[in-house]
Amino acid sequence: MAMNFHQSAIKTRFAVRFVQAMKRLNKRRGVTTTDSYKRYRATRAAACASMASAVGPQRAWSRAVLSKTKRRRFQAISRKRRLINPRRNLGFGQEEDLRGLVPGGKGMEYCSLLSETAHYIRCLQAQIQVMTDILHHSSSLN
């Protein structure tokens, strides 16, 4: 499968975006410093969103994540697409599980679901690597 996946480029972009998001989180002191769970949620959302924006809108899963973050603008479109898609077959249990796991997988055809899953896995790997690096570095400095 010809997949245009430049993992290092995506990694760099993700790192930059994620660091920016963290900076922004730190500036919003009121919310983030008080509640640790909220902070965790915000960090996770920042990680997801920065990964999706690093990938760009050409992938379905990143589109789904981005539309989730900018919900107001994209809600109608995503609903409609989900309803319209004719090739969506009611698969067996595992397929449904996979649909639940991959963002935006609810409205996908099985074939594209698999390719999106592959891309998503690679992006998650890159994300984990970058985040681990950041964590290692900051913990070693402390």
Partner: peptide
């Protein structure tokens, strides 16, 4: 793993 890492980063973040 991503959740775990973000949890850890969230814990570290205010100190940094």
């Amino acid at each position: 793993q991503v959740e775990f890492l973000s949890m850890k980063l969230a814990a570290i973040n205010p100190r940094l």
